[in-house]
Design a protein around this nucleic acid. Structure first.
Ligand SMILES: [Zn+2]
Ligand SMILES: [Zn+2]
Ligand SMILES: [Zn+2]
Ligand SMILES: [Zn+2]
Lengths: 135, 135
DNA sequence: GTTGACCTTATAGTAACTATATGGTTTTTA
DNA sequence: TAAAAACCATATAGTTACTATAAGGTCAAC
């Protein structure tokens, strides 16, 4: 199949497919005489795997590692499990950081209401406030 | 004060200060005869404002808008309030997206334990599973 | 007079695409 | 059959908010 068909099948942009090839995530396919790429079902599977990883927010580097594990199927899978643990840790860190951010923002938002002039805006005042308090 | 002093004062890299100037967030300071930038306390305040906005995860574009509001202090501040509402909305969206992601990842992690071979890794199997189920 | 700290500009790299420009090929349609 | 539409190719630049590097000018101290 050609790149457009593959793109529709897996629901990825053709540019992205070429990009993955360039990044070494998708093996370079054979070419027709005119230079067009020709993909196999293996390629489609691999591409779908990449996409599912991306939906899980795994980075291309992490996906690359997973692929290298897959290429050596008799290793213990502890590295895969550890990679996922790390990734979960990162996601959780992001969540807690964003939650603390949300608190700050909501509190800031509470310091103003409509009908004021910019000069008296509680939000701008809140941001401008120095956190260093002189004695 | 020169750029290095300002950088230490506000705890920002000198490169970042020049970058903000280039992006139009920090007004171009006067120069000494030798070309060195000379900053005033106004600059320091403005830079600190930018940094506090960045800590709140506001984008440079959002900061730019806030600055433009500040430059016209007799407008109603509703635009400021709306900007913050939007930002809070974005942060909340990110949080819920990450929480749903975390759930998926934790469930995936539960499908494997150590001591398996890559071939039998529940995580890789879970990612490889096609979501389309034939009847 | 040279070391070191400081300053200058310009350029490239980061992540993961996305968009654009330019041109060749194939298929459809008038 | 010829033109239009759809498809393919490569190369390059843009996105965000910096960070790093290169190559060089300026200034104080030793
Ligand atoms: Zn990760
Ligand atoms: Zn307000
Ligand atoms: Zn925002
Ligand atoms: Zn496993």
């Amino acid at each position: 199949m050609r790149i457009g068909q593959l793109a529709r099948l897996v629901d990825v942009d053709t540019q992205t497919i070429r990009f993955y090839e360039q990044q070494g995530l998708l093996p370079p396919p054979d070419r027709q005489e005119n230079g067009y790429r020709v993909y196999t079902d293996k390629h489609a599977e691999r591409l779908a795997f990449i996409r599912r990883c991306r939906i899980l927010n795994l980075s291309l580097a992490e996906i690359h590692k997973l692929q290298s594990y897959q290429d050596d199927p008799h290793q213990p899978c502890s590295a895969v499990n550890a990679l996922l643990d790390d990734h979960i840790y990162h996601v959780r860190s992001q969540i807690t950081a964003l939650q603390s951010l949300e608190k700050q923002l909501v509190s800031l938002r509470g310091s103003c209401n409509d009908g004021r002039e910019v000069e008296a805006c509680g939000i701008l005042a809140g941001i401008s406030e120095r956190s260093t308090k002189a004695p």
